[in-house]
Amino acid sequence: MTERSPVLSVRGLSVRFLLPGGRRIAAVTDAHFDVAPGECLALIGESGCGKSVLASALLGLLPANARTAGHARLGDLDLLTSDERTLARTVRGRRIGLIPQSPAAHLTPVRTIRSQLQETVAQLTGVRGRAALRTAAEQAAARAEFPPDHLDRHPHELSGGLAQRAATALALVGEAPLLLADEPTTGLDRDLVDRTVDELRRHVDADRALLMITHDLAAAERIADRVAVMYAGRIVELTAADTFFGAPGPRHPYSRGLLEALPDRSFTPIPGLPPELGDLPDGCAFAARCDRATDACTALPPFTDSVACHHPVPAPTPEDIRA
């Protein structure tokens, strides 16, 4: 496969929150990753690890006490240095489609899906005129497989799955090359998770790039091409999804612990709690919970060969792969 230039290229992205009293919260530190067209990167980690802050940073939706560093290039534009006007007028909806966490809350309750789609079409595309808008909205609905006979319903008259499709249809209107899904499956049933994820996958296969932020490992396994594991604000492992979820499995002890905690695996929790983002240790943030920790872990592990750990599970050798 030839390498294509990534849609989103994040280099050294860090986010700090300044709190009263001079406290600094290191929400995201030195994140590096790319997302290419036709690819889904799943960003996984426990709640409070900084993954949602990363999404807010990309959309320019950080609160006023946040400070950022690094770059997040979307084509020729750096999302971190762009002003609100640029982000609002040319990025959100047009170049990044946001698929929200709770579609029912994302849709305007007092208006029908059709009117919301038409409004978004009129906003984001050049389509004008009543008949043209109607057709365009119907096409947008069809792209997300939203049933046309439900277009005149209000959000509360839709099932969770259809509300999700409506929100996806809205996110797709602007033909954005990058889709950003923040916990799109929280609180959904397993069947609905599978359907939502499969639909997102169709859009990835239609050559869009998808960055999916989730704590649902099963959903990530179903959709992702690559997986980035975030712990205490840092990406500690970034690897192909099939080796991560299948054999030989993840290499970072934290990733292994996360997978082993699943009810269909050993269902054992990782001991302890994640460290406070306002009070991170100098060395490896996971060392305190890690059974492989050594003296080396007092130094920050560099990110080498897909993992940031001093003693990762060895990478498979070519013989292992053949076996």
Partner: peptide, 11 residues
């Protein structure tokens, strides 16, 4: 694999 490598290594 190439893009994994590139993304992984900090500049």
């Amino acid at each position: 694999d190439i893009s994994v490598e590139k993304a992984g290594k900090p500049d």
